[in-house]
């Protein structure tokens, strides 16, 4: 078991290297450069070139890549932003934490809304608790997150004036953006939970338990739920990836200074250090979450645990 975990954590290293390489490659083939974007019009080409030279931007991309990786590993130095000339890591960290808060709040909301409703819908299949949420979930899963965001902005800020429309001053500031990005995944979770529950319910061992006279409530809670929720947990973990992307949109609409909007903003400036540092942090978070989900999964389901403790296929 531990070998598995260690292996996955070690895999972070090639991930980081790979991600850095991909980004440098992509930045290399896209047009634009920091000098041009920052200095503005009317500045002579020599000045722009000199500016880029000073930043080290004009070096061949492999050289930049190797230098960056060396600095990262040996000095824990993620470079200086081409735009603000501040240390990239210190610039990103607070914004990263904000995005994480938003994304996790979103995951939490999507789970707490979708899963219980899904369980209820499966248990009360074809009755009101099933049909109405199902219809709503269908509709909501098909609405783009930014449309939800716009509508909420309009209703809660413009019309009712109960929530702030920008910034991050208090918990109130996070509710709307988190809800906006959480609702489509919540709908997915609802449908997925319901179908997973239904599948579990139809398993033979459930029939056996019922036949043996075990009370229905116990059947549900002890047997069905445990097996139904496992794939749901993976699903929720995976949705973190989508949520981080959704966070970008929410950040833009609600003026939340998160890492998503930072990366998007800096792409125009080709601010490689910041973009890479931000992406690496996101990648690490993503990998760790997947690892936790997989471990939790294995921990709970003995069949899967066996697969990991045995020799890997």
């Amino acid at each position: 078991m531990y070998k598995f975990v260690i292996k996955r954590i070690l895999f972070l290293i090639p991930t980081i290297l790979g991600v850095t390489l991909i980004i440098y490659a992509v930045m290399n083939i896209t047009p634009g450069n920091p000098g041009q974007a920052i200095l503005g019009t009317g500045v002579s080409q020599e000045d722009i070139d000199a500016y880029n030279e000073k930043l080290g931007y004009n070096d061949p991309f492999l050289q930049k890549y190797v230098r960056y990786v060396k600095n990262m590993i040996f000095d824990q130095d993620f470079g200086i932003s081409y735009v603000t000339k501040q240390d990239a890591f210190t610039e990103i960290l607070p914004r990263y934490l904000i995005t994480l808060k938003l994304a996790f709040l979103g995951v939490f909301l999507s789970a707490i809304i979708g899963i219980p409703l899904g369980i209820k819908a499966a248990v009360e299949q074809y009755k009101l608790w099933d049909t109405i949420p199902s219809i709503i979930a269908f509709l909501l899963a098909a609405v783009p997150a930014f449309v939800l965001g716009l509508v909420m902005l309009f209703v809660f800020c413009g019309w009712l004036n109960v929530l702030p429309s920008y910034g991050i001053g208090s918990f109130k500031h996070y509710i709307m953006p988190a809800l906006a990005i959480a609702i489509p995944p919540a709908a997915q979770n609802f449908r997925f939970t319901k179908s997973s529950m239904l599948e579990s319910i139809r398993q033979d061992y459930v029939r056996t338990a019922r036949a043996k006279g075990v009370p229905e409530k116990q059947v549900i809670w002890k047997h069905v739920l445990k097996n139904a929720l496992l794939p749901v947990i993976t699903q929720v973990g995976l949705s973190l990836g989508t949520l981080i992307c959704g966070a970008v949109v929410a950040e833009e609409m609600f003026s939340i200074p998160g890492v998503g909007s930072l990366i998007v903003e800096r792409i125009n400036y080709k601010d490689e250090p910041v973009i890479i540092a931000g992406t690496i942090l996101i990648a690490i978070c993503f990998t760790l979450v997947m690892l936790i989900v997989d471990v939790a999964y294995a921990y709970v389901d003995p069949r899967i645990r066996a697969k990991y403790t045995k020799s890997r296929k």
């Binding site: 716009l150 902005l153 800020c157 413009g158 429309s165 920008y166 910034g167 609409m253 003026s255």
Partner: peptide
């Protein structure tokens, strides 16, 4: 205050912010 979205800015103005 940085308010990137125009809709949000209009709302902020209406709310006296």
């Amino acid at each position: 205050q940085v308010i990137a979205d125009n809709n949000a800015a209009v709302i902020a103005f209406k709310n006296g912010e």
